[in-house]
C-alpha cells in the first residue's frame, strides 16, 4: 500500500516528491517565474540552452532567480530539429553545470512542434552511450515508447496535445497503454491547459506531468501553479485510491430500508 504522505517517484536514481515539472519560459519576468515555481511545489524545472547576450551581458539571468542547488535544472533541446543539434546542445548543457539528467526533444516541424521520432531515437541512443540520462519528449505511441526505453530513455514523456496548445489530453488510450507498458516513469509533457487535465494525466497512471504554457499564460500564473500542484496530487491520489466502477443507471446512496 502506498501512503500518500510518502508518495515519491524515482527517475535515473534520483527521487522526487513533487510529480509536477514546470517550464521556465514565457513568464512576464524572472520574479513571476520564481514565484510560480515556488507555488507549484515543483522540484524540477526545464531550462533551455541559448547563446549569451554578448552585447548586454549585465542582463539578469535565470540562475539569479531559481537556484539550481535547490531546484533540479532539466536542460532541454527545444528548438532542435536534428539529432546532432540536440546532442550538441546537451553536451554544452552538461558542461554548463554537470547535468546528466536532461530532456531530449527533437522536433519535426515548426507548425505542430511534433517530435521527429527517427531523430529522437538516434539522439537518445547516442546520449545514453555518453552517460546522459535522457527524459524523452515523444509521440503518444506505445511502440515508440518501447523503442525509446530500449535506446536508454530514463523517462518517457508523450505529448497530450501539441506544445503550447492547451488542448488537454487528446488520446487517453495511448497514454494509458504507454503507462502500462513502460518500465521507466511516464510523464505527460505538453498539452495540458488547465488543472483538470493535469489530474486526468495522473488518473491515467502517469508518474508526473510537465507543463509550461498552462501556468505561464494563465491570467494569474502563480495561482494556476498552485492549482496545478493540487491537481497533480488529486489525480495521483485518485489513481492510487482506484476509482469506482461506472454504472449505466442510478444507484441510490441513501438506504431504501426505513423510508417513511
Amino acid at each position: 500500500m502506498t501512503d500518500s504522505a510518502t508518495d515519491s517517484w524515482t527517475v535515473a536514481g534520483r527521487t522526487f516528491t513533487s510529480r509536477l515539472i514546470v517550464g521556465t519560459g514565457k513568464y512576464k519576468d524572472f520574479a513571476q517565474n520564481a514565484a510560480a515555481v515556488e507555488a507549484s511545489g515543483a522540484e524540477i524545472v526545464t531550462v533551455a540552452v541559448r547563446r549569451v547576450n554578448i552585447s548586454d551581458p549585465t542582463q539578469p539571468v535565470l540562475m539569479d532567480y531559481i537556484d539550481p542547488k535547490k531546484i533540479t535544472y532539466l536542460p532541454n533541446t527545444a528548438g532542435c530539429f536534428t539529432a546532432d543539434d540536440a546532442i550538441r546542445t546537451l553536451r554544452l548543457a552538461r558542461e554548463a553545470g554537470g547535468w546528466d539528467l536532461v530532456k531530449l526533444e527533437v522536433l519535426g516541424e515548426a507548425r505542430t512542434l511534433y517530435p521527429d521520432m527517427r531523430e529522437t531515437l538516434k539522439a537518445c541512443e547516442v546520449l545514453a552511450k555518453e552517460g546522459f540520462k535522457p527524459m524523452v519528449y515523444c509521440v503518444d505511441d506505445p511502440i515508440a515508447a518501447k523503442q525509446l526505453e530500449d535506446a536508454g530513455a530514463v523517462a518517457i514523456m508523450p505529448l497530450g496535445a501539441p506544445i503550447g496548445s492547451g488542448l488537454g489530453i487528446q488520446n487517453k488510450v495511448t497514454i494509458r497503454l504507454i503507462v502500462e507498458g513502460a518500465k521507466v516513469p511516464v510523464l505527460v509533457d505538453a498539452g495540458v491547459g488547465t488543472a483538470s487535465e493535469a489530474a486526468v494525466a495522473m488518473e491515467l497512471g502517469c508518474d508526473g506531468v510537465l507543463m509550461n504554457t498552462a501556468i505561464a499564460e494563465a491570467q494569474d500564473p502563480v495561482r494556476m501553479a498552485r492549482a496545478m500542484r493540487h491537481a497533480v496530487i488529486a489525480g495521483r491520489e485518485a489513481y492510487l485510491a482506484g476509482r469506482m466502477k461506472t454504472r449505466k443507471y442510478a444507484d441510490p446512496s441513501s438506504p431504501l430500508a426505513g423510508l417513511i
Binding site: G23, T24, V52, V61, M63, P75, A96, G164
Partner: peptide, 8 residues
Amino acid sequence: IVHFVGGG
C-alpha cells in the same frame, strides 16, 4: 558561449 535561459 551559451547559458541557461527560461524554456519549457
